[in-house]
Design a protein around this nucleic acid. Structure first.
Lengths: 334, 334
DNA sequence: ATGAAAGCGCTAACAA
DNA sequence: TTGTTAGCGCTTTCAT
């Protein structure tokens, strides 16, 4: 293993000078720099990042805890975050939490073990009551709709407004009996917030809010969407529109409705939330809400790096809510 | 920051004893262990992983270089690898290469920087001629169909056999003019190998190999699949079956054919390769090849950890090819 | 069973 | 501009 000392010896300088060259410090004479670079190349020297980290008290890595990386939504999030982190010269280590509270807390403790310089936690299992657990000695940015006003920076979606807009769109397209597919509604989360927007839109339009039209599923995935859609149709529930709180659910619904011969958008119109890549290619293509993923991911990384680089901890907290836009496709009549 | 020394002082023992406790070494008296554990808890001590890594010459992290994490195929691969690595107490740091040769070589150099204990490289840009570049001083496992017989362990898919089986399936379902959608065929890669299987199946069945039916696209993604399918239909190419070398391409093809009013499977049958999650939910659902992702990912991690743990480097190399199965769905007539 | 010494490879702070 | 010193927090080795 070639060390900085070996290079120093080979170049006839001190280890410190080699370090200065490696780190592009200004006070190195051009000729010295060249000598050192030549020696580095000749010996095929590589910095030992562990040693540098120990010395600097940094790891150069941030953690990203998401429920699962293999989903259109979190996959895209992870991809964007990795790319954004690269620009700050940070690597991203991924933790899959399976949306469990315990695993999310575990990810927090890993960041406390100084494995990461900071953690981006996409909370899906923790509750508002766990907010205090976010107070760790390393920077944390939280993503998602489970914890608001916590002790750390937070990036969220415009859940209520966007859901209201999505539902309003269905109404404008003539739907009068609009179902919503969401998860269990116990406390503040994706489902409860989007349900609120849905209710608001109905109220705005003077439509009744019928609890028979609120369908609660176990997981917000394609399987559940398909199953639920088939059940709704089989049970002869009267509905002409469906707002799904995620695109995965919505794609499942499209499949489920096709299974039982319900035509979309002629008989039932469907809209989702997330604008995942596949939604444009589904048949029919899926109308949806685009919450500006890129900005969200970049904002999260920016907030985190700001905290990492900031010398003294401060108590100000930033709450960032992204913009959104409606993407109208075939599933609501183009 | 609480260090091992602080704990030692608090517990009235030496730092070494604390270290022994942390690492579950046997030679520690029970009472001593308890004292130390108590002190650790009281001071809220956390090991400094960077320091441990420097000392041990390990990082506890492996690198995973994939073209992009936000694709159904690589997302699933990443998810499975992260889970498998967890079982070995390894974290996974993800590098996105965008399938570029340069970025893949860069990932190799990062692993040389001792950032990772080892690297799983899903090669999509490197060429057979680059095989020698895989000879680095840290363990590497290569995934994919670009480099065979290189200097490192290799995990691959049963490309030729599986493609042959997929094409044969189309023939058995009555197709006689079967198109193939693949990328540019310059050297050994996904496209060339699967094209070989396609040719073999045609030959087996005594069908002519018509180069007009071989469609080459730029990227193996949904956009290109849709575009190509529309062009094939618009150009009045005569075909009654399509074998797509990836599911992403195939989902695009389903969309493209729908755009121009071609019915699947009645007029044209379509089969893909990968069995990504979405393929079961597409309308029509997509027949495809399932290459046993889990085994592949686990095998890759197993091979890598074996190398990491092996004291002396050896020159034996393992070439692992996964099993496959055909998944028959609506797009080929159920 | 426990501890002392040395060092992993690097960099911050200061000295020359 | 360059070099010296002194660690970063941990583990390995060897002594006790």
């Amino acid at each position: 293993m070639v060390t900085i000392k070996d290079v120093a010896k080979a170049a006839g300088v001190s280890p410190m000078t080699v370090s200065n060259v490696i780190n592009d410090h200004p006070n190195v004479r051009r000729s010295t720099r060249e000598k050192v670079l030549e020696a580095m190349a000749r010996l095929d020297y590589r910095v030992n990042v562990a040693a540098r980290n120990l010395s600097k008290g940094r790891t150069g890595t941030i953690g990203l805890a998401v429920p699962e990386v293999n989903s259109p939504y979190y996959g895209r999030l992870a991809a964007t975050i990795i790319t954004a982190a690269e620009r700050h010269n940070l690597r991203v280590s991924i933790e899959q939490t399976d949306a469990s509270r315990e695993n999310e807390l575990h990810a927090l403790s890993l960041s406390r073990n100084r494995l990461y310089d900071g953690l981006i936690l996409s909370a899906a299992g923790m509750r508002q009551a766990d907010a205090e657990r976010l107070k760790v000695d390393h920077p944390v940015v939280i993503l998602g709709e489970r914890i608001f006003g916590g002790p750390v920076d937070h990036v969220a979606m415009p859940n209520v407004d966007a859901s209201r807009a999505a539902t309003r769109h269905l109404i404008e397209r003539g739907c009068r009996r609009i179902a919503i597919l969401c998860g269990a509604v116990e406390e503040v989360d994706v489902s409860s917030l989007r349900l609120t927007g849905y209710r608001q839109a109905l109220k705005d339009a003077g439509l009744p809010v019928d609890s028979a039209l609120m369908q609660h599923v176990g997981k917000l995935d394609m399987h559940e969407g398909a199953r639920c859609a088939r059940e709704m149709a089989d049970s002869r529930l009267d509905f002409d529109g469906v707002f799904c709180v995620t695109d995965s659910l919505a794609m499942g619904v499209l499949r489920g409705l096709a299974d039982v011969g319900v035509r979309v958008p002629e008989q039932v119109k469907v809209i989702g939330f997330d604008n995942v890549a596949e939604s444009a290619f589904f048949i029919p293509s899926l109308s949806t809400v685009d919450p500006d993923h890129n900005t969200m991911a970049e904002r999260a990384v920016d907030l985190l790096t700001r905290r990492i680089e900031q010398a003294e901890p401060t108590t100000d907290r930033e709450e960032f809510v992204s913009d959104f836009s409606l993407v109208i496709r075939e599933s609501t009549g183009g």
